[in-house]
Amino acid sequence: MGQPAQRQSMASSSTPRRIPWDALAVFPFILFAVMFLFLPTFSLIGGAFTDRAGNFTLDNIAGLFTDQIMAAYWISIRISGASAILGALIGLAITLAIIRGKLPQGLRSAVMTFSGVASNFAGVPLAFAFIATLGRLGLATIILKTVFGIDIYRSGFNLFSFWGLTLTYLYFQIPLMVLTIAPAIDGLKKEWNEAAQTLGASTWQFWRYIGFPILWPSVLGTLSLLFANAFGAIATAWALTGSNLNIVTVLLYNQIRGDALQNPGLGAALALGMIVITSLANVIYLVVAARAERWMK
């Protein structure tokens, strides 16, 4: 037997032993966070403010303010912003349609499953799919030209441009919106709509005063997520355009590969700039959401 004795010894020593046990379990997680999230980030922040000799400098930051780099940031922000806002709006419309539009039940789970797939169908294969669809020889391009007589390339469209990339990014942005906003829309109680109706409100008034204000923090949170998602994306852009499109991720990628900017400090500053912009998007979200969520616990 001997078990009761053992249990007793465990019980008596449990108070001092409990703490190392817990710490031990959390240790790998903390170690991981430090090694692969905090240290690399701090190293870049540090690198952005040091020169080759290791002294403090603001030259790297100042070096960001060239036409090429500013243009790269700006086009990245525009693509991310456009794909996030359009993705959020379209995703919201689709989610509302499948959840509150009285469409058949099966449709909803089909859309949710597909969204899970499409939100992860990013990167290189997505670029291939859009080249096959809207490239110069893509199926949609050719059908539009031969059947409808619309030559989209002659009328200014280019897959390897701002709108081309935005349209491509929407393929993972919309499903991501659907997946993250669906629980929030499920949380809108049917009774709120009914209560508003008995009080004389039209459908529009319900959404204007009740439905949308309740969803707003969730929409905003997803918006900042979508923005960061597009802002850091490179694989799709790279596979679509090679190094042709001057967006900030492509610039940094080239810098990492071959020191294109001739200055590692400048590379670190470029990375720091990216972190600042995505963090800013999150801070804006947190501030606005905190104001919009006064009514929440």
Partner: peptide, 17 residues
């Protein structure tokens, strides 16, 4: 954090560090 800090930035940090 991995949703906020782009993978490209992280890998740059790894290579430097």
């Amino acid at each position: 954090l991995p949703l906020v800090i782009p993978a490209l930035v992280l890998v740059y940090g790894y290579i430097r560090l």
